[in-house]
């Protein structure tokens, strides 16, 4: 039993560099994100954090705990934001549905966080209509406190295009890091396009 545990630990250590392989995203070049029809052009360098099982794509400047840009590309009906299976026993996540109103998306994000990362106190602050990636969408702001008790602020832009959800969220500690990083995040958001897809 303990031998097996030790073996597992060794394997994990050996495997971890591959899991955590990051990629530099250079400024001024257009890239497709989240294996989807969405492309963005950042105005500064970012690091892409590779997290294989999830369909979302994660970028950061200083590390995920300090600033995190998440791309959700083409989430279809009955898919969850973070790619959990529907039958998952203990922590079922909510699923996107093409019949949702775009105003249901903030609750989709909030409830995914509650289920996925044990966020018990989270609030959506402001919701307003905007054009996102050339489509009518919303911008909403939110705040939550995870287990580390460091309050986070977030800003999300989302649109539903051809029945699929496209969203970019930026999150950082409310203290300093949100304000410090939001301009770079908004530059990425402003550059986003979602190519028209054939049905």
């Amino acid at each position: 039993m303990s031998l097996r545990g030790g073996l597992l630990a060794v394997l994990l250590v050996l495997a971890s560099p591959a899991i955590a392989s990051n990629t530099l995203i250079v400024a001024g070049r257009s890239v497709a994100v989240a294996k989807s029809a969405m492309t963005v052009t950042p105005d500064r360098e970012w690091n892409r954090i590779l997290s294989p099982p999830a369909p979302n794509e994660v970028w950061t400047i200083d590390g995920q705990d300090l600033n995190e840009l998440d791309f959700f590309g083409g989430i279809a009906t009955n898919q969850s934001l973070f790619g959990e299976k529907m039958k998952r026993r203990s922590r079922p996540q909510p699923f996107f549905n093409a019949t949702m109103l775009i105003t249901d998306v903030p609750a989709l994000l909030e409830n995914s966080y509650r289920a996925l990362i044990n966020i018990n106190v989270m609030a959506i602050d402001q919701i307003e209509p905007v054009t996102f990636a050339g489509h009518q969408g919303i911008r909403f702001t939110y705040g939550y406190t995870p287990r580390d008790e460091v309050r986070r602020k977030g800003e999300a832009h989302a649109a539903i295009v051809d029945g699929k959800l496209y969203m970019i969220t930026f999150e950082a500690p409310a203290l300093h890091f949100f304000d410090a990083g939001i301009a770079a995040a908004r530059a990425v958001v402003a550059s986003a396009t979602v190519a028209a897809t054939k049905k």
Binding site: T77, S90, R91, P92, P94, N97, A98, N111, A115, N118
Partner: peptide, 15 residues
Amino acid sequence: NAPPEPASGGSAVAG
């Protein structure tokens, strides 16, 4: 106009 499908699953009591 298409028939909507379930928006979310149920769950076990968490934690």
